[in-house]
Each structure stands twice: as C-alpha cells, then as structure tokens.
Design a protein around this nucleic acid. Structure first.
Lengths: 343, 343
DNA sequence: CTGAAAGCGCTTACAG
DNA sequence: CTGAAAGCGCTTACAG
C-alpha cells in the first residue's frame, strides 16, 4: 500500500525523474520534452493515480502553498466569517490554511508563531494583539510575508487591510445625533488596540462636530479577559448609574450582545428607554426585536483584499516593496434600535 | 538571513548531526550522549535560536503533526465552535490544523481531500456529506486515520463522534407534548444525512409513544442549497397552509433562525400562536425574546473526544482496531418559546 | 559514547 | 530532446 512516487513512474517508462517532473509541473513545452513522451508520462500518471508529494516539494523549493491565519478567536462569528472568505480566496489560488486562535494571550500567540514558522508557511494573515509587537517585528526582520487585518500595531509599518473604523464610528454616532439622541454612552474594550481607539475617536469627533457637551460623554471600558457574566453585570451597574443616557454605542459586536442582555435584565425598552447601535453586524442584531443598527464590515472584501495583498507580498521575491495599507469602508445598516427619538 | 540548520550547529561544535538530532529530540539519554555534550548542544541551540525544520522532519518520518478539519462551513457558528474546541485540544497535543469547508459540494470536498492527502496530514476530522462516501471509502482503504463527526455515512463502518440525535429529538418533542402541544410541524433538510434522519426518527417516536395521530405530523423539507430567502418564503407559505399547527420543531439551528424570520414576517407570536423548539443552540436563541428552547450539543466534549479518538487512531500503528463510535448526549435547554400551552 | 552515510521525494543546474 | 546527480534538512540503522 505504498504511495507511488515520481521515481516509480520514471522507472516504468524508462525515462528520468527529470522528465517526469517537467511534465508534472507543466514545464515540458518549455524544456523541450517531446509531446509523445509527455503524453506517455501523463497517461501513466492518470492510470497509477500519482500525486506529487507536497512535503518533498516544499523541502526542495522552500514554498509550501500554505498560509497561517491567526485570529483572536475562530469561534467568534466575525472571525469565523473572515476565515470562510479567506479560505475561498486561498483555495482559488491553490493555498491551504492553518488557523490558530490567540485568545489575546501572548504565550499562545508565541507558540503559534513558532510552530507555523517551522512549518514553512509562505505567509501570515494576522489579527495582532498588543503583546504581539515583538513577534511582528521579528517577522519583518526575517522578511516573512505577512499582513495585519482588523487592527494595527502602532508605530510598526506593515501591510494591512482594515476597516475605516473612524468613519464607521463617526457615521454611526452622527446617525444617533440626527435621530435626536444627545446623551450617548460609549462601551468599549480597555486594551487600546488600534481599531478600538479609532472607533472612539470617530465617536468623539462626531459629538464635537455637533457641539454636544463633552460632559455628557460617558465611557465604559471592560477587558477582553472579563467573562460575559462580569461584563453584563458591569453594564447593568453602568446603566443604573447613568440613567440620563438616551443611547448606547457598543464598539464591538460581543459587547453589543452582552449589552442587549444587560438592557433586558434591567427591563429597559429599546429604543424608547435607550437607543442602541453597535459595531460589526451579527445575525442576532438582524433578527432580535427591535433589530439593531450597526456599522457592518465588508467581510468578503476584507478576505479578497487580504489574500491579494499577501500573495503579492509572497511573490514579490527579493525586492523590498513599501508596505501597503488598504482601508475598506463600513456600511451603516439602519434598523429599529435607533429610531427617531420621541420627545 | 539564512535559517540555521542542524548541520550548522553540528559543525560549530565539531559533533555529528546525529548527536544534535538526538539532543534536539530528547533522545540523548537513551542514546548515551554524554551530559556534557548534550549541554553544549543545547546551549548553542538556545544562543543561535535554532528550530528544527518541520518539513524535513515530515519528509523523513512521514509524520507531520498536522490534522485536517473538514467541515460543512467554518462560518456556521456550530462548526466555528467545534473548530475552536478542536484547535485547543490539538495544540495541547502539539498538532497543527488545516481547515476546509465543503459547502456540501462534492467537487470542493474532492479537491480538499486530494490537497490534504498530498500534504501528508496525519489524520482527518470530517463532517461528511452524502457524496463523500467514495472519498471516505478510499481513506479507509488507504488506512489513513480519520474520524467522522456530527453525522455518519450509512453502511460504512468508521470511527465517529456524534450526538445522540434520536434522543435529543425525542426529548425535545416530549417536552412540547408535556406542555400541551399536539400539532407539531417538523422542519428539516431534504438531503437525508444521518443526523437529520435520526432527529426525524426521534420526533416520530415521541409522537407515536404519546399516541398522537400521525395525520397531524406535518413535515417541511428544504434543501441545503436553497438560499435563506427561499427558505423563509417556503416557511411563510408553510405556516399559512398549516394554520392548525401549534408548534414547530426545527431540525437544525439555521433552519430555526430562518424560522424565526418567517414567523416574524407572518406576524405570529411565540409561543401563543406557535411554540418553537430547535436543534443546536445559538446566541440568538438565548437572547431573542422570547428565548428559544433547544437541544444543545456538548461542543467541548465533542472536540475533546474527537481529538482523543483521532490520535488513538494515528498512534495505533499497524494494528487494525475495530472502529469506535462515540455517542454524546444532548442537553435540553428549556426557555420561553415552548411555555405551557394556554388553552 | 559518537560519526559517516543513506534516504525520505522532490527540483533544477549542468551536461550532452 | 533527455539523463545523472546534487541537495533541501532532517532521522536512524549501522558500525566502531
């Protein structure tokens, strides 16, 4: 039951493995293998069901046709959707994908990087965490192709594909203002990743441009490490301590989801007691009653552009290209949770 | 910027690569390398930051420490959660994971299998589709370790980890009956995969055991290929044509989600107009109002048992073990969508 | 206690 | 138009 190799094919046809290799790789024309020989080789390959050994090829060429996708948490619907898009594009280009979740934990991230690098992946697609700065610098220094998605590492120039988070937050806030809301609470993560910071900036700018008193801006920051239960409790307290709020802006979808739970538990009605908007779309936001207004990310586009950029990076060879940043636009989807304020 | 190899280490210390290899693999004790030599090797390895080349090791040993996870759709929350669990367990055991989604499409599945096999994965974890029977048989014949999850292929004996779908459906139906519902519609997929068939059987048995007239069993079957829009429309029509129904049983979570949309659009109230239960839990089911009663799968357990079983299979060597089937138990989570019927 | 050497299955520069 | 041979970086049976 041994797997059949190039040598087996060569032997049986009394040709060299060189010839077989050229045929297998479609180089027979260029290398001047006669059509007749190529034909014979291809026939036997079909007959025997020969498939080239990818490991040997990788060892020889240094190219594995594998990319590593490192996300925060593959079970999070946003990253799961990204993974699906990346997969589709990668397979089109004949790439396989390793995945790994960091859970925002640096030791896990470290182990992932080491393991992937030793496995000769051709490139990385990474949603970095703050502590990853060192690893990212190392990748850069070693000239390993990679791109960042969803967020950046401040002060490190890299290729990336991210959302215009500032604009999304600005527009979402503007929408609340247009609909009569003035006292908007902002709920975000405390770890200060770039995407979160830009959402916060967009939120502030919109308030400022509308000349809404900054005193009314009330922020709640929770940690990624906190459990859902803890976050829900924090939100419940926050709502009780800030009864003047007429709207809430959730900076990411799982905060929004916990937010809905907290609002339910506090027996508040959306949007009459409090309006709600959130970053990142989610089935729940589409189907819950009332449905939730969001800034949605163009996931397909992020996936396509990511693979495109990474492949360009992988295929660039020796030349040092200047890092390319791609910024995609969010879509504001207006639903019922932010209906015009009734006064 | 060349990567440092075992030979570099050996040369610099005037020892053979054999020695270095033994030390790297922790075999120096067994092979009688002196502690002093081992010490020197380890020091230089640390200093130079040497990491063994996994590709070369794989080519030589035939073992890649890689498994392929082939699911229906990685962006589906159930499979995304499975992927997370599998990942955690795999990393604990020093395995990396390739993932791939079949979308229930056989050509894609075929391409995935070929690509993964050529990449020398040590084993497969697969949610099979009907058309995969041939591929699965081939894996068996080639003695490639694999296990099936979520569903089986009829008439092919394999290792597997699946849910007790019959029991889950039976209990969920029994719960509806206990709460006074008698005219229960069953919504399922038409492709006849094993998990779906068993859910249907469980549903029927519960009705039969309660001596509920089989004439009242009304089934709607849709195809996996149908778009969400199409399914929702089909459901709306189904609801209109079967106004006598007092409850709906959705055989999988995305049918349940589409079901909620259809019920909303038809302006029906849950559970007063129609009660709802669904297979597979989902955030939406937990948070929507009213929350939805479900049969939840123990995802952690499925992941843990899957890796355990696959690794046992991988490490079994030549011996032919009898295929092992593991059946895990669903958890019925009673929520508000199936509250006692008001008469 | 340690080394020289073969070989995993490819690709490719070199030679004719 | 095609082949012999080196080499990618490991592991391991064999020898001493």
């Amino acid at each position: 039951m041994k797997k059949i190799s190039m040598r087996d094919i060569a032997k049986e046809l009394n040709v060299s493995t060189t010839t077989v290799s050229f045929v297998v790789n479609g180089k027979h024309k260029a290398m001047g293998i006669s059509d007749e020989t190529a034909q014979r080789v291809n026939e036997l390959i079909g007959e025997k069901g020969y498939n080239p050994n990818t490991t040997a090829r990788t060892l020889r060429t240094g190219k594995s046709n594998t990319i590593a996708l490192i996300v925060e948490d593959i079970s999070n619907s946003f990253f799961a959707s990204i993974a699906k898009g990346i997969e589709t594009e990668a397979h089109k280009n004949n790439y396989k994908i390793f995945y790994g979740s960091t859970d925002n934990n640096n030791e896990i991230a470290d182990a992932l990087f080491t393991s992937m690098k030793n496995s000769a992946v051709d490139g990385f697609i990474i949603t970095p965490t703050k502590g990853m700065a060192e690893q990212i610098k190392k990748l850069k220094k070693e000239h390993i192709p990679f791109i960042l998605i969803d967020r950046l590492i401040p002060d490190i120039e890299t290729d990336y594909v991210i959302l215009d988070n500032y604009q999304g937050a600005y527009d979402l806030t503007q929408h609340l203002i247009d609909n009569g809301y003035r006292k908007i609470g902002f709920v975000t993560l405390s770890d200060g990743m770039s995407q979160m910071e830009n959402r916060k900036k967009g939120f502030f700018s919109a308030l400022q441009d509308a000349q809404i008193d900054t005193l009314e801006k009330t922020i709640l920051e929770v940690s990624y490490q906190d459990t859902d239960e803890f976050i829900i409790q924090a939100l419940q307290k926050y709502l009780q301590n800030n009864k003047n709020l007429d709207a809430l802006f959730f900076a990411t979808n799982y905060l929004g989801i916990s937010g809905l739970e907290a609002i339910q538990k506090n027996n508040l009605t959306i949007p009459n007691d409090i309006a709600v908007v959130s970053f990142d779309d989610h089935v729940l936001f589409r189907l819950t009653v009332p449905s939730i207004t969001v800034a949605a990310q163009p996931i397909e586009e992020i996936a396509t552009k990511s693979i495109e950029l990474l492949l360009k990076n992988i295929n660039k060879g020796k030349k040092q290209l200047k890092p390319v940043g791609i910024i995609v636009k969010p879509e504001i989807i207006i639903r019922n949770s932010s209906a015009k304020k009734v006064i």
